Amino acid sequence: MNGESRRFNLSEHIADGDWLDALEQVDGPSPKLRTQVTVEHPRTIIARNRSPDIGFTQSINAYRGCEHGCIYCFARPTHAYHDLSPGLDFETRLFAKPDAAKLLREELSRKSYRVAPIAMGTNTDPYQPIERDWRITRECIELLAECRHPLFITTKSDRVLRDLDLLTGMAKDQLVAVMISVTTLDPKVARTLEPRAAHPLRRIEAIRRLTQAGVPVTASLSPIIPAITDHEIEVIIARVAAAGARDAAFIPVRLPHEVAPLFRAWLKEHYPDRAGKVMAIIRDMRGGRDNDPGFGTRMRGQGVWADLIRTRFLKARKRAGLSSERLTLRTDLFRPPGQQGQLRLL
C-alpha cells in the first residue's frame, strides 16, 4: 500500500506486505524478518487512563511495537509518534524499556501511590518474541509478586507459561488474572492475520495449563472480523471453555487511523472475493465509517450486524457454561517495595 501519513510529520508510509513471511507455524519472528530494537528510557512506566469503557485505570507497556504483526492491531498508529510506519516499522522497529522494573519500584514506593490493578498487554503484547531475551515483563511481574500487587495480563502467546511459577503464587491470593486471545482456530487464517503470533492450538493449551495451575483465564475473541472469523464464534467459545476458561469476551474489529488502509490492503491481497462485503459490514457496525472512536460504541459496535454478533456470542457463552460474573482482584494485600522484610520483623 502506498500513501503518506502526516499526522505526526511522518514523511513516508512504508507498505506492510509481510503477512506471509511466517510460512511455518512457529512462535517467533521469521528468519526473513529483521527486527531492530531500540532501548527507550522513559521517566515513568505506569500509564494511566480515564476512559469510561476500559476496565482498568493503569497499565504498563514494556515494549513499543509488536513482532506478532497482527494486521488489525489498533496500536499500530502509535508508531507514527516516532515518525515510523504503522505498517512494517511497527512489526520490526521495536522499542524496549529495560528500566521498567526499576521505574515501577520507584512509583510503587511513593507515599502518594494508590493501589489499583495494573494491566499488561493492553497496547502491545508483553510476551512477544523479544521477551524471551529481554525478560522485562518477567522482571515487572517479579516485583508485583513481591509487593503482592494485583495484575491483569492480556496476551496471544503461550510464552506466558514461562512465568507460571510467579503467576501460580499470585493466583492463590487473588492477585492475577490472564486473558488469552484466540481470534481464529484456522491456522491458514492465523498465518496471514497474525503471522508471528503463537499457533491457535498453543494458545488453547496455554489456557488449559494456566487453569490447571489455578490461574483464572478469560478468552478473548477480539477482534471478531465479519465474513472472516465470525463464523468461528461458537466453536472457539466451546474450545476455550473445554480448556478451562472461566469466561470469554470480544470486541468487533476496530480500524483507527492508519489501520484502516492497511487492513483494506490486506483484504485485497488475501480475500479479494469478499473485501467489499467485509468493509460494508464494518462500516454498518461503525455508523457508516471505517472506525467509530466514540466512547460507549467503539468497543461494542452498533446496528444489525453488531447486534447479531453479540447475540450469537452471548448464546454460545451461555451454552458453554461460562461465567459472566466480573472477576475482581484483591488490593488489600499490597505492601510497598522494601517494606516486606520490615513488616516481618515487627
Rank of each mutant, 00 (worst) to 15 (best):
R209L: 13
I251W: 05
L327V: 11
V178N: 06
V176H: 01
I237A: 04
A119T: 10
M279T: 15
K188P: 00
D99C: 03
H13L: 14
I207R: 05
I54P: 00
P216E: 04
L88E: 13
R283K: 12
K172T: 09
K188Y: 01
G55T: 10
A280G: 11
T184C: 05
P29T: 14
D16F: 13
A100C: 09
Y63I: 05
E91G: 09
N291M: 00
G276T: 04
T183Y: 02
C140I: 04
R335T: 12
I14P: 00
E12F: 13
L166W: 01
A62M: 09
K111Y: 07
E106G: 06
C140S: 11
I153S: 03
P77W: 09
V37K: 01
K102H: 08
E269K: 13
H79G: 00
T35V: 15
I141N: 08
W19K: 06
L185P: 13
F263I: 08
Y72L: 02
C140H: 10
P337Q: 03
V240W: 02
V235Y: 05
F250G: 13
D273E: 14
I71K: 07
M179P: 00
K315H: 12
R203L: 02
D125M: 05
N61E: 09
P252C: 07
H257A: 15
R298I: 11
V37E: 03
C147T: 15
W19R: 12
G294N: 15
G28L: 05
S5M: 01
A15N: 10
R326E: 12
P29A: 14
V39E: 11
Q340Y: 01
A242L: 09
I282N: 08
F152A: 01
L84F: 08
P261W: 06
R312A: 01
A280E: 15
G169R: 05
T168S: 15
N9E: 14
D273V: 02
Q340S: 11
K268D: 15
N49P: 00
A62K: 03
R326W: 06
N61I: 03
L143R: 11
A260I: 06
Q58V: 10
L33E: 13
T229K: 07
Q128M: 14
R289V: 05
L94N: 10
L10Q: 13
R286W: 04
A197Y: 08
C70K: 07
D290F: 04
C147G: 12
H82Y: 12
L346G: 14
R114N: 03
G69P: 09
R310L: 12
L104Y: 03
M179W: 00
I141Q: 07
P336W: 07
R319L: 04
T137C: 02
I309N: 01
K277I: 09
T44M: 08
R203T: 03
F313M: 07
F74W: 10
W134N: 07
N2H: 02
E194I: 08
D247I: 04
F90H: 15
T154L: 14
Q302F: 00
T154H: 06
H257Q: 13
D133P: 00
F152W: 11
F334T: 01
G65P: 07
R50C: 00
G121M: 10
R138N: 05
A238S: 11
Q25A: 12
I180T: 11
L210D: 04
K97V: 09
Q302L: 02
G87P: 06
R239T: 10
P117K: 05
E131K: 05
L167I: 08
A238R: 11
R274K: 15
A197G: 15
R312W: 00
